[in-house]
Design a binder for these strands. Structure first.
Length: 115
DNA sequence: CGGCTGACTCTGG
DNA sequence: TCCAGAGCCAGCC
């Protein structure tokens, strides 16, 4: 993580920077993103997700709630598309529409360091 | 500057 | 496990 991304004039950009670090086939929670950014709450992350510009290349689909489920945002099948994208990446959903963080849970930036 | 709008998370029963 | 209540903050007009 370059400090340049942490110096963005927009908090959302910092959030997006973290989201972009989530590898395909993995998922992270809003709270986790917020914790990594360290300057906002899970809410703010959710708001940032809602403001993700289309075509920006941000893997917003890899961000789900702490319950391992996809939040049902306004609009309708937006959540369905998110699930489709995750399934396309190999993320498995159970009959309850939840994922197993033990399998697809992102460990954050920790594993990116030498360890 | 003030008011409204959201893709959340934790806690208690 | 499910339901209900409270706390949180940035962006836009």
């Amino acid at each position: 993580m370059s400090a340049e991304q942490l110096d963005s004039p927009r908090l959302y950009e910092r959030i997006y920077a973290v989201v972009r670090r989530i590898p395909a086939g993995k998922v992270a929670t809003y709270g986790q993103i917020a914790t990594i950014v360290g300057r906002c709450s899970a809410r703010t992350v959710g708001y940032a997700m809602a403001a993700v510009p289309t075509g920006s290349g941000i893997p917003w689909q890899r961000v789900i709630n702490a319950q391992g489920k996809i939040s049902d945002r306004r609009g309708g099948d937006g959540s369905l598309r998110q699930r489709r994208l995750l399934q396309a990446e190999g993320v498995l959903f159970d009959s309850q529409g939840r994922v197993d963080f033990r399998l697809v849970g992102w460990h954050g930036l920790e594993e990116e360091s030498d360890g």
